[in-house]
Simulated assay, not measured.
Amino acid sequence: MGCRGQLEKYCSRVEDAVSRLPEQFDHIERAIHMVSDCFQEAGKILLIGNGGSAADAQHLAAELVGRFMAERKALPAIALTTDTSILTAVANDYSFDRVFARQIEALGRAGDVLIAISTSGNSRNIIEGVLAAKNVGLKVIGMTGSAGGRLAEVADLCISAPTDETSHIQELHIMIGHMICAQVEELSQ
């Protein structure tokens, strides 16, 4: 199969996953309201993820703090994936499993929302972060692949991208994040 055939096959798999995304619309709508309510109550959004999901966490935090589609006030969001000094100190002094939990213990407050992104739903540092968030009184939105993993069990709300392919899960996560940002932005005006 040539390059064009591979591209068509890839696009077909993405289209299949996107066509099943409406199965998650109720969860996405609940997430929109959780985030919007958090901002209305002067809370903030914390975001965590590993690898590509860390990049997604940073991307979504930037959309909220900057702007997505409309000019509006800045919305408080922090990606806990960006401070290399904290990440390496906690990983060295405790373990990599605690890199998000320690930051959540320091920065999270009751009424805040944690968005935890994990394609497998089983990353130990994500699960430890979620458990720390619940101890502090944060609400937790999980974003996973179709299997959900442990994250689906411990999050208050889980949005599962309807595919098992990591690349497509990540593509859908950013699409879902953009849906949330667009609606939250509209509600915040």
Rank of each mutant, 00 (worst) to 15 (best):
G148D: 08
L157V: 06
K139L: 15
K44N: 03
F68E: 01
L172V: 14
H33C: 09
L131D: 07
Y94T: 14
A132E: 09
E105L: 11
I78A: 01
V130T: 06
C38Y: 05
A106G: 13
G145Y: 07
T166D: 00
L131T: 07
I28L: 09
S167G: 08
Y94I: 14
Q40L: 13
G129I: 09
V90P: 12
T166V: 13
A74C: 10
G148W: 07
A55T: 13
D56N: 14
C158A: 15
D156M: 03
G148V: 11
I32R: 09
G66P: 00
A70F: 03
G121D: 12
A31E: 10
A79G: 07
G121A: 05
F68N: 01
A55P: 14
E153Q: 10
A79D: 10
A54K: 07
H33T: 12
G129W: 11
R102V: 13
R67N: 11
S36P: 06
I169F: 04
P162V: 15
R98C: 13
A62T: 13
T88R: 04
A132I: 09
A57Y: 12
I141W: 00
G52H: 09
L138T: 12
G49V: 06
L75T: 07
S85F: 07
E71R: 11
I169P: 04
M69Y: 03
D164R: 11
H59S: 05
N125I: 12
A106Y: 05
G111N: 09
K139Q: 15
C38N: 03
E171N: 02
G111I: 14
L138A: 08
H27N: 09
R109V: 13
D37M: 01
A91L: 08
A110L: 01
S120V: 08
S36Y: 10
G137K: 06
T88W: 05
A132T: 11
Q40E: 14
G108Q: 07
A161D: 03
R150Q: 12
V90W: 08
K44W: 02
V130G: 04
I127H: 02
L138M: 14
A161C: 09
A61H: 05
T163M: 02
K139F: 14
I169D: 04
E165Q: 08
I104T: 11
A89T: 14
A62K: 00
A61W: 11
A62P: 02
K44R: 14
I78C: 04
R98N: 06
F96Y: 13
R109F: 13
Y94N: 12
I32N: 09
Q103N: 12
P162L: 04
F68I: 03
I45F: 00
S85Y: 02
T84S: 15
R98L: 06
N50W: 05
I48T: 15
L131C: 02
L80C: 10
L46C: 07
R109P: 00
S95M: 06
R109A: 12
G66D: 04
